[in-house]
């Protein structure tokens, strides 16, 4: 078990919202499903998140946003990843994200949006299957 490859996930909270319960629940849940989760805490700038993702060489970034600024923040993260030739990192998002914003999120390159009511297994399965698929290309 020890030498196996582990999927590495960065759980990040961009912007000015102080609600980290959701992020912690996801981090903890993924840990229990065998993921290595890097948690960087509250109030991150999008530049900080991009740098952390690159240095940690994560497979996935999970953005938790409850401030209402999800469109701008997510767009900036994705832009930052592109600027650093790191757009192969999977981006998923969660938090308070209205149904009508989901298409826009996906348009800008978010692979999935998990709002309240999503299960950890759902998130884990999504990451595993998406990562598995793209590894084959």
């Amino acid at each position: 078990m020890n030498q196996q490859e582990r999927i590495r996930v960065l759980i990040a909270k961009p912007g000015l919202d102080g609600h980290e319960r959701g992020a912690r629940v996801v981090a903890y849940g993924l840990r229990d499903l065998g993921f290595e989760v890097i948690y960087t805490g509250l109030r991150q700038t999008t530049a900080q998140i991009v740098q952390a993702a690159i240095q940690e060489d994560v497979d996935v970034i999970g953005l938790s946003i409850l401030s209402g600024a999800h469109l701008t923040l997510t767009e900036n993260v994705i832009k930052g990843l592109k600027e650093n030739q790191a757009e192969d990192i999977l981006v998923i998002a969660g938090g308070i994200i209205p149904e009508e914003d989901k298409p826009a999120m996906q348009q800008m390159g978010v692979h999935a949006v998990f709002t309240a009511g999503s299960s950890i297994e759902e998130i884990a399965d999504f990451i595993k299957s998406t990562k598995g698929e793209s590894a084959d290309d």
Binding site: R31, G34, E36, T40, G41, A47, Q48, Q55, E56
Partner: peptide, 29 residues
């Protein structure tokens, strides 16, 4: 790492936020 799932929470960066965008510093958890 968790002795049960093999997963982990790597939380050391929590205390290092100021360093994230400092070009001279590279952090790996």
């Amino acid at each position: 790492s968790s002795p049960f799932s093999g997963g982990a929470i790597l939380g050391d960066r929590l205390r290092m936020q100021k360093l994230f965008t400092c070009e001279q510093i590279f952090i790996r958890s």
